[in-house]
Design a protein around this nucleic acid. Structure first.
Length: 251
DNA sequence: ATGTCCCAACTTTTGGGA
């Protein structure tokens, strides 16, 4: 079974790329962020024609998260704590409890949005810390945090900026410390595993990236992983998202 | 030129967000 997380930066703008990618890769479960749609615009019927059930938590212009599945999709839950934005959706697919998360950007260390981001990560921690440990779990999404300096192409560029601050990294560490495994790093302990490159300045071709998209699982599920890959081809070509899909293969 | 893209709107350009 293949599971991917992908921030598509508008499913409306990205539908040609997303539909082509689904057909080409036959990924079983896809965790999507930033649909930037409401439910009336979400392509439920088109996805069904491609063989996918889907659940969407949309907000219109901003945010929006979804789960696509070819292996069943049940027990959908949306939202997180008292958050009013569409940033979290979970469902059970093929025996796995899967999460699609779009963590707030934070904008700047002195911006109220940064405190919103840290609070959001605390709320996610609360939910994961009290989870049903008998259920296989896979938490994915755009976390907008680069966990270590190895996840940043040039740490000096990000000095004093969000995505690399200690409170953000501590929040990600706390999530992992509930008993989760960072699957990309399990497969590749060192070296770049970037998932996002700025549209500006030719960042992708200069390898100026960040690792800010993650797939986390419980320890037993992590033992089932046979491969993890960043699909960099999806970041190339016509009208790509600024994020590449992160894909895990489970035995 | 912050070497870009996406969205909404008092839309044919600007401002906000990432």
């Amino acid at each position: 079974m293949k599971v991917a997380t992908w921030n598509v930066n508008s499913l409306t703008a990205r539908w040609p790329r997303v539909s082509e990618w689904l057909t080409a890769t036959q990924t079983d479960v896809v965790l999507i962020q930033e649909t930037k749609q409401n439910d009336t615009k979400f392509p439920f019927a088109e996805l069904r024609a491609l063989g996918y059930e889907s659940a969407h938590y949309g907000q219109g212009q901003w945010n929006g998260v979804a789960i696509l599945s070819r292996v069943g999709l049940e027990d959908v839950v949306t939202g997180l704590g008292s958050d009013e934005e569409a940033r979290c959706i979970r469902a059970t697919c093929g025996g796995l409890r899967v999460y699609s998360c779009y963590v707030p950007n934070g904008r700047a260390l002195d911006d109220p949005h940064y405190q919103y981001k840290l609070g959001w990560l605390r709320d996610l921690h609360s939910e994961l810390a009290t989870r049903d440990r008998t259920q296989p779990l896979l938490v994915g999404g755009d976390f907008n945090v680069a966990f270590t300096d190895e996840d940043v192409y040039d740490p000096s560029v990000f000095d004093g900026l969000t995505h690399v601050s200690e409170p953000e990294r501590d929040a990600l560490r706390a999530l992992i410390d509930t008993g989760l495994v960072d699957l990309a790093r399990q497969q590749q302990p060192s070296g770049p595993l970037y998932t996002w490159w700025d549209y500006r300045k030719g960042a992708f071709h200069r390898a100026w990236g960040l690792r800010i998209d993650y797939l986390f699982s419980d320890a037993d599920t992590a033992q089932r992983v046979s491969a993890v890959a960043v699909d960099r081809a999806a970041r190339k070509g016509e009208k790509p998202s600024d994020h590449a899909p992160l894909v895990v293969t489970l035995r």
